[in-house]
Design a binder for these strands. Structure first.
Length: 863
RNA sequence: GCGGACGUGGCGGAAUUGGUAGACGCAACAGACUUAAAAUCUGUCGAGGGUAACCUCGUGGGGGUUCAAGUCCCCCCGUCCGCACCA
């Protein structure tokens, strides 16, 4: 018996699969279509264990669906534009294009070495001009359809990456990639009007269109869209003002609580509100105050500790329901220009921030909501605002109404008086897509002094990136700004000298439609409508939870835009989404704080030591594999030592797929042992299929043979269900059990054994495809196991005629009956009461109740 | 602060959704093979008591519902994730 040798078997089967072209997407009209997609990788240069886990899961699904008779589309591509290529250019002097495409080459080889059932003929990179040509075409169509807007706006500026960030890309006030505190700048920017779709993006989360998405992702998107219902209302200035016309109309505020208007004691505006800016121009102290507010970090801590601060403006506002009452106006640091109208009215009794502010500036606190069961004179506000339900008081025409009714009544009164209207506000803001970078898709527009911003003519697409020398990246700023040969062009409209747009697209645009391009990557339109209708939406999308908001929201929005211009006929791009957990590893640190690679550490009797020096090593937390903490294990090294099947097997074992899995040396050893046991169990039965007719069950099977058949069919049933439900860890456990039974089956009928082996080879194929092919071949299977049909469990073998039934006395298990499966309640009761152990526990007691649940349990209650 | 998920052996995790708690793997221990080790195989493996058959306890803590609770309800404690001065 020879040992299984993955070093020979894996390349051999990869070659045979490729030669036979088995992974090419089939278009059999008699079969159903299934599109499985893993989030495509950024070509950083090397695959890591996270990729292995992600693609192993997708491959299980793809191979399983293929075996179930689907036409499977399982493509791969590269999210190839982006900052790291330019950073590499700065550091190494390599041109971003060369760096990127060299990385793609390297990573493709690595991925192909994983033996993934991918149709490589459909591969593309988003940096291919043929891809971004269509992105530009689509953008021009969006522009024409009114989805695009150019506007001056205060943007999040990343001072390290020298580029603008979308709000979604600002995390705790820092750039999502650089980690640098974000600054505010006013720039003219391209926007996609995602807020126009806010209602539908939100509605689809709840109306069943995303039934196949995890709840936590839907919740995160719901919070991000942040719908709130309230009203916009206008406060007029009390008395004469000398404000310019643009500001003279009063102050527009947004509130969700118009019912508390009678408790208002001040108005507030954001530091960058136009009213604040107006007075700052005349008042240096206010200007200083505003600057102070803006300098304050937007980080979590800074906000937590920030005191409510205000600066009174020389203005008074009239109360909308009682113009005789006037309210002071403050510029306040806790008011956000980006939300609502950038202005509020403060009701200290029922809003904690307003209360903090009112206490500091000694403003009135008038409670207007009476908690249920509280007397009006007992209602006082001390340090805590009351935000709960109740009935309104101190509120004129609103007195006695509930909060809900009060909101409706207040809005009605405001609308009647022409002072306000009901308004739905979203937290979501439009998607700024301009990036001041070279390595991205050029925005196909030209700036002309006479014509303004003009789209590039269709026949002039694609606008390709100019060749700039690698040295251009050594200078800060955008090389496109300096590429005058490329930048200076005639205006497409009037022909006069004009300038190309030098911003490129946010790379999230590239990944917002790639799934549609995969349905026909050679199409001469952005999307081939026939192919898209055949394959979309993606049936199963798999990727990291870190994309729960950014990528997944943009892709949903983009799909709506594509539908609007007729490119696709779907609202939602991903019917089912699965977010997989990370691959983690223990961290190791030497006495002097240096991080150590797992390979440099040896664990001996529970003591970790530095392999080179023998000195003790501190074992730290189990964390996501990362270069900075060196707790990485290279897929290449593992593949070289154990083969890719073992690595695939291990990352799918133990932990549920949505949870993190800890990589351990003993774990991969365990996976490796399984490979050996499997091969040792299969290889002695070479040619077992020679006289095996799966459709003719021999008549002379012994009980032992039938017992094996039950195990075989039970395993088929359970593993099928586990794969369907993404319970790969359980499928793995069942395969261990199946193999264990098979090994202990001893001397069984050759037919029953062949049936078991045939099922086994096919059941392991999605997980460890190379070994499965090796087994299939030695057994004498036809063709590739990849192309073999999935085994089907015989329902008759899933039910046994004998079952064991636990018997409880007072809820404690006392006996185990082995009885006929179809025994009726009386029979079960008789058998239970006849059991010696049960009799012993009933002795001297009175039976007060007998609970008999056939197939489940018997419980006898005694006193 | 708001929202969500979760808490089971030495460890990762199972438990058909109210019905035998701890499947399967890892680690550990014992044995077989071996001159020896590795590899491989066999067995044990929640805690306590008992020679044993068995008994008691046990799913973060406390209470409750039920014939029956890891699972449902209430109150605590803890961990993780997301959002966060959102009016």
């Amino acid at each position: 018996m020879t040992r299984y040798n993955p070093k020979e078997a894996e390349p051999k089967w990869q070659q045979r699969w490729a030669d036979a072209g088995v992974f090419e997407t089939a278009n059999d009209p008699h079969k159903e279509n299934y599109f499985v997609l893993e989030m495509f990788p950024y070509p950083s240069g090397r695959i890591h264990m996270g990729h292995v886990r992600n693609y192993a899961m997708g491959d299980v699904v793809a191979r399983y669906k293929k075996a179930r008779g689907f036409n499977v589309l399982h493509p791969m591509g590269w999210d190839a534009f982006g900052m790291p290529a330019e950073n590499a250019a700065m550091q190494t002097g390599a041109h971003p294009r060369e760096w990127t495409y060299a990385n793609i080459e390297a990573m493709r080889t690595q991925l192909q070495g994983m033996g993934l059932a991918i149709d490589w003929a459909r591969e593309f990179a988003t940096s291919d001009p043929d891809y971004y040509l269509h992105e530009q075409r689509m953008f021009l169509a969006f522009w024409e359809a009114g989805f695009v807007e150019r506007r001056e706006s205060v943007v999040n500026w990343d001072p390290v990456d020298h580029t603008v960030l979308a709000n979604e890309q600002v995390i705790d006030g820092k750039g999502w990639r650089s980690g640098a505190p974000v600054e505010r700048r006013t720039l003219s920017q391209w926007f996609l009007k995602i807020t126009d779709q806010a209602e539908d993006l939100l509605a689809a989360l709840d109306d069943g269109r995303l039934a196949g998405w995890p709840d936590n992702v839907k919740l995160m998107q719901r919070n991000w869209i942040g719908k709130s219902k309230g009203c916009k209302l206008r406060f007029d200035f009390a008395g004469e003002t000398e404000l310019p016309a643009a500001l003279a109309d009063g102050l527009s505020v947004y509130t969700t609580r118009p019912d508390t208007l009678f408790g208002a004691s001040f108005c507030g505006v954001a530091p960058d509100h136009s009213l604040a800016q107006h007075f700052a121009a005349q008042d240096p102290a206010l200007a200083a105050f505003i600057q102070d507010c803006q300098a304050g970090g937007t980080s979590e801590e800074a906000i937590e500790k920030a005191e409510k601060k205000g600066y009174a403006l020389p203005l008074q506002m009239a109360h909308p329901f009682n113009p005789a009452r006037t309210l002071p106006v403050y510029v306040a640091n806790f008011i956000l220009m980006q939300y609502g109208t950038g202005a509020i009215f403060g009701c200290p009794a029922h809003d904690q921030r307003d209360l903090d502010f009112a206490r500091k500036y000694d403003l009135g606190v008038t409670p207007v909501v009476l908690p249920p069961g509280t007397a009006p004179d007992a209602m006082t506000i001390e340090a805590e605002a009351y935000t709960g339900p109740g009935s309104l008081f101190n509120s004129d025409f609103l007195d006695g109404l509930t909060v809900e009714d009060g909101i409706v009544a207040a809005i009605a009164r405001l609308e009647a008086a022409g002072q306000g209207e009901g308004h739905t506000n979203f937290r979501l803001r439009d998607w700024g897509v301009s990036r001041q970078r070279y390595w991205g898709c050029p925005i196909p527009a030209v700036h002309c002094d006479a014509c303004g911003v003009v789209p590039v003519r269709a026949e002039d697409l694609p606008v390709t990136l100019p060749d700039v020398p690698a040295s251009a990246f050594q200078v800060p700023g955008n090389p496109l700004d300096r590429a005058d040969d490329w930048r200076l062009v005639p205006c497409p409209k009037c022909g006069k000298p004009a300038r190309r747009e030098t911003d490129t697209f946010d790379t999230f645009i590239d990944s917002s439609w790639y799934f549609a391009r995969f349905t026909n990557p050679k199409a001469d339109a952005p999307v081939d409508r026939v192919a898209a209708d055949r394959w979309l939406p993606v049936d199963q999308y798999i990727g990291g939870i870190e994309h729960a908001i950014l990528h997944l929201l943009y892709a949903r929005y983009f799909t709506r835009c594509m539908k609007a211009i007729g490119l696709v006929d779907i609202d939602e791009p991903f019917a089912n989404l699965f977010t997989q957990g990370m691959v983690t590893h223990a961290t190791f640190q030497s006495a002097d704080g240096e991080w150590l690679l797992p390979d440099d550490v040896v664990v001996d009797n529970g003591e970790a030591k530095d392999l080179a020096t023998g000195r003790p090593v501190f074992v730290g937390a189990v964390e996501k594999m990362s270069k900075s903490k060196k707790n990485v294990v290279s897929p290449e090294v593992i593949a070289a030592d154990y083969g890719v099947d073992a690595a695939r097997w291990f990352v799918l074992s133990d932990s549920p797929p949505e949870r993190d899995v800890e990589w351990t040396a003993s774990g991969i050893d365990g996976a490796w042992r399984l490979m050996g046991r499997l091969w040792d169990s299969v290889s002695p039965h070479a040619g077992a299929f020679a006289s095996f007719d799966p459709y003719t069950v021999p008549a002379d099977l012994s009980d032992k043979d039938t017992a094996l058949r039950r195990v075989t069919h039970g395993s088929i049933d359970a593993i099928t269900s586990d794969i369907e439900h993404f319970r790969f860890n359980k499928a793995v456990a069942r395969l261990y059990e199946f193999l264990g039974h098979l090994r202990k089956a001893g001397d069984v009928n050759a037919w029953a054994r062949a049936e078991a082996l045939s099922a086994l080879a096919r059941l392991i194929a999605p997980f460890i495809p190379h070994l499965a092919e090796e087994c299939w071949e030695v057994l004498g299977g036809n063709g590739f196991v990849y192309e073999a049909a999935w085994p089907v469990a015989d329902p008759d073998l899933l039910v046994s005629d004998q079952v064991s039934l636990p018997v409880q006395v007072n809820g404690k298990k006392r006996a185990m009956l082995t009885i006929a499966a179809d025994l009726d309640k009386e029979g079960i009761e008789a058998a239970a009461l006849a059991d010696p152990a049960v009799i012993r526990h009933l002795e001297g007691k009175t039976i007060i109740k007998k609970v008999i649940v056939p197939g489940r349990i018997v419980n006898i209650v005694v006193k």
